[in-house]
Design a protein around this nucleic acid. Structure first.
Lengths: 140, 140
DNA sequence: TACTGATTTGTAATCATTATAATATTGTAA
DNA sequence: TTACAATATTATAATGATTACAAATCAGTA
């Protein structure tokens, strides 16, 4: 899997110290941090960074496909995930953690079984498909 | 499939005129309305209704399992769906519509094929699993 | 070194949602 | 029917994430 930094460098996008600090924090990160969590962490190394920079950098990384924005937290903040090997996301409604489930499965029922077999309890599944609808493809 | 109204009545919850107007609008509704869209529609019949009432009623209907809250719109508003037969949700990034895909399938790749076969183009899939994690089950 | 464009910063604005408190309505018991 | 308590509704204020914006800074190049 290509690193976030490698993807950014390949695109010829300038690696400012702020961006580098954010990328370093995200690289291999499995905690699914929110913008505020990224901001708090980077600020300790780089005290003058602004939250607006975190927003713009995360948007950039999403556009490059280097990270993924998750909207798993209902009515809450976005959180981010480096795009790595196929895995699923499980949100615990008690402790509010987003837990990676590393399975290479595509069938919802198989995935639920895999999550259950790790000792968790699945109560709900939301699957969202994104793209372009037939009307918009035609009226292009 | 049980109607929203039937579910509410079974629970012995009082059917105020405001709730009834909201339920009537949601019953069989396939447009996945947001709170504001529900509010605008109901207001035309019931001009004094408050948006706070729409919020509280939608929360009630969700708790009863009569409707489902979707967070398919990234960084956007919640939208709602009467709980009916199994189907999938497809968001068009151009026209911003949420389109129901009526399939009784559980395999992501099969679902994508079904959506494609209707002339749409799927670009991304987000599947979110919700429940209680093993740590929280144990430390109960 | 000077200049141009991109980036960062801090702040203000926006927008959905939640909280709150006053008012109105409902259901129930006398 | 009347009175009362519990519940629901309303309007408004508060919150919190995100976006917009303009000024200041920085990077790369002629």
């Amino acid at each position: 899997m290509k690193s976030i930094r490698a993807i950014v460098e390949e695109e010829g996008i300038s690696l400012t110290p702020q961006r580098l600090a954010i990328i370093d924090f995200m690289e291999g990160n499995r905690t699914h941090p929110t913008v505020d969590e990224i901001y708090q962490d980077v600020k300790s190394m780089y005290p003058t960074i602004s939250k607006a920079t975190v927003y713009s950098t995360m948007q950039l990384l999403c556009e490059l496909g280097a990270v993924q924005e998750l909207s798993i937290r209902k009515r809450g903040e976005a959180c981010f995930d480096p795009r790595e090997n196929k895995h699923q996301h499980f949100l615990c409604r008690k402790c509010n953690r987003v837990i990676d489930i590393s399975v290479d499965l595509y069938d919802e029922e198989d995935i639920i079984k895999a999550i259950d077999s790790r000792g968790h309890r699945v109560e709900d599944v939301h699957s969202y498909f994104y793209g372009v609808c037939s009307d918009c493809i035609q009226s292009k």
